[in-house]
């Protein structure tokens, strides 16, 4: 009898986290659907989205511009240093552009935006919950998901691909700055090698599709964590931390999955 109870307890301890994870996933999915269902409010009141676009997009510009410039510059420097050993420093433009457009642009901007804007969104919504502003809205028959959550979500989903495109361009400019004026790669070769190698559909569009999914993931994590934060100072701080950590993990994991789907090696096999 006691052994039976012990076995049941052990198996139960194994099962509890699985059940909890499934319940959490189900709750998150329902919340996601409710955000989508409440999204018509964004069309009826576009001002709400514009305001959030300012906080998520415009205020993230500075960090995106500076990081992109330095990432592009260091990429140009490192690639030149390696390629010059094989006498192929001409393709530095192509390497910088491909690396930025395919991977570094979408992933780095997503990570930067999640720590710059995602955490702010979580803290804002969490604090609104802690100070009972969300309950007050509900009292006044203003649904908080439509009024607070959906505009932030859609503004972020719009802002992330735009910021990624800006990141790509500024990064390529940074690579050019190092390669052409500083290290003496020919200007024409830099651009022509890049143009010959970068494909619009397979590189640029796929990179932007990636960043769109990153935007959905980051902003959903941010609003979800904020909306379901424990309404205390400690709870909000924990939710903010969770947003940054989970966004980073989800972005990197999602990046692998999306890249595997888009990988051009599979196309030749058909």
């Amino acid at each position: 009898m006691t052994t039976l109870e012990r076995v049941v307890g052990l198996v139960g301890r194994l099962g509890a986290p699985v059940v909890d994870a499934a319940v959490g996933l189900g709750a998150a999915t329902r919340f996601f659907l409710s955000v989508l269902a409440a999204s018509t409010s964004c069309l009826r009141r576009p001002r709400l989205v514009v305001r959030e676009l300012y906080f998520i997009g415009v205020l993230s510009l500075a960090i995106i511009l500076v990081s992109a410039l330095f990432v592009g510059m260091v990429l140009g420097l490192q690639m030149y240093d390696t390629l010059v050993r094989f006498g192929s420093e001409d393709i530095v433009g192509m390497v910088v552009a491909l690396a930025l457009v395919r991977e570094l642009g979408p992933v780095l901007s997503a990570l930067l935006i999640s720590s710059r804007a995602g955490s702010a969104v979580t803290a804002e919504i969490g604090l609104m919950k802690a100070t009972e502003q969300l309950s007050a809205m509900e009292m006044m028959a203003v649904p908080p998901v439509a009024r607070v959550v959906a505009p932030r979500f859609w503004a972020g989903v719009l802002a992330v691909p735009l910021l990624t495109a800006i990141f790509d361009v500024v990064g390529i400019f940074g690579g050019w700055l190092v390669a052409v004026p500083l290290l003496g790669v020919d200007d024409g070769t830099f651009w022509s090698q890049m143009r010959a190698a970068v494909d619009f559909r397979l590189d640029v569009v796929n990179g932007l599709i990636k960043s769109l999914w990153f935007g959905v993931a980051i902003l959903f994590i941010a609003v979800h964590q904020g909306f379901h934060a424990e309404p205390t100072a400690e709870g909000v701080s924990r939710a903010t931390t969770r947003t940054v950590v989970r966004s980073a993990l989800v972005v990197l994991g999602l990046d692998f999955v999306l890249t595997a789907f888009m990988f051009r090696g599979f196309e030749g096999m058909g």
Binding site: G57, A97, V101, P161, L162, L163, A165, I166, D168, V169, I172, W191, M194, R195, A196, V198, D199, F200, D203, V204, L208
Partner: peptide
């Protein structure tokens, strides 16, 4: 953002 997209399409991807 849109200008960056156009630049990527026309100048980078040719």
């Amino acid at each position: 953002g849109i200008a960056a997209l156009v630049f990527l399409a026309l100048e980078v991807a040719d």
